[in-house]
Design a binder for these strands. Structure first.
Lengths: 171, 171
DNA sequence: TGCTAATTTCATTTTTTTTTGAAAACTTTG
DNA sequence: CAAAGTTTTCAAAAAAAAATGAAATTAGCA
């Protein structure tokens, strides 16, 4: 009996109901948009989210009608956020991608990679504010001090709250 | 004794320490950037945040070196988020703007205006997914159902968590 | 009411971001 | 180790977002 490789998405053809797929892509294009991600990233994730079997990159390209470059870039982004992973398909040397669906983890990665670095650099900027604080007028200086203190509290709160946020996503 | 109008920012001239101002603008340009706001909006808020006295629009324009159009647009955005307010200066028909510094309120307005509408439309999209759910294969259908359920939980959690988030900003 | 300063609007320009596609770089395998 | 298949990279093109500035509108004042 000859070896038959397992069916992958491209042979299956009716991998995903077409309407579902469209709604899913729409959904994630917007969601990723809120998070400041380019359209193509949302499209890819949306396609994979409702795909029963993992898809190789050229399938993603042809189904979405995007370029190889976009697909490669988008998958790189999604990989770095751990929003997609690859699975090995015997007898096929292409990588096959599928969506990671634990949103809690996705958000915590997003916050760690995209937000926290800004919070870090904000600290430095506030320190510089404090050192440049030398007013002639005592009343004015007090005003500045209060504003700086507010910024400190803001970044402190943000730095604690944001990482905790993903944990609150108990749903 | 002749009437002397109260001094406003433009007469005061040394309204804000120059370095503080620069750091502040830098800070808020980045912060607003995270929230997807254009540079000019961050610049304006950053300028006002450390301004001892409220500033009229033409002062904002000349100090930041931005156009009238940008300033007007940016102030409109900030006003709609209630991030700035105007104060009346007797003997001057221009509006004078100052920064609202209660970040808690700022965030809750931002979430309400910029995020929640998306969550609302997401609900509709999920409903459409459910109605287009008619698979031949029972196993596949189950897969779709689980994914849709996850999306529901995500939007439900988001819809509850996000508005509560600003309240957590107890700092 | 008419005049003028102040502000808003919006078509155009500029800048920034994203996508494309072809070349380069890998990687497996015969 | 060559050949074919796959993925990445990156300069150039396209698209999207933001800024400009002048015209239109609005609002305060005499």
């Amino acid at each position: 009996m000859p070896y038959t490789p397992p069916k992958t998405g491209e042979q299956l053809d009716l991998n995903t109901s077409k309407e579902l797929e469209i709604e899913s892509i729409d959904f994630f294009v917007r969601m990723m948009g809120i998070l400041g991600m380019p359209r193509s990233v949302g499209e890819i994730y949306g396609l994979l989210y409702f795909s029963v079997s993992p898809l190789p990159m050229d399938q993603i390209v042809s189904r979405l009608g995007i370029s190889l470059g976009s697909a490669s870039q988008g998958l790189k982004t999604l990989r770095s956020l751990k929003a997609v992973r690859t699975s090995y398909v015997p007898g096929d040397r292409r990588d096959h991608y599928f969506a990671e669906t634990e949103f809690r983890r996705l958000f915590s990665n997003f916050i760690k990679d995209e937000i926290m670095p800004h919070m870090e650099s904000a600290k430095g900027r506030i320190e510089r504010m404090e050192s440049s604080l030398s007013s002639t007028d005592i009343e004015t200086e007090e005003f500045y001090k209060i504003r700086i203190e507010k910024l400190k509290r803001l970044t402190r709160a943000g730095g604690r709250l944001l990482p905790a946020l993903a944990g609150l996503l108990k749903f």
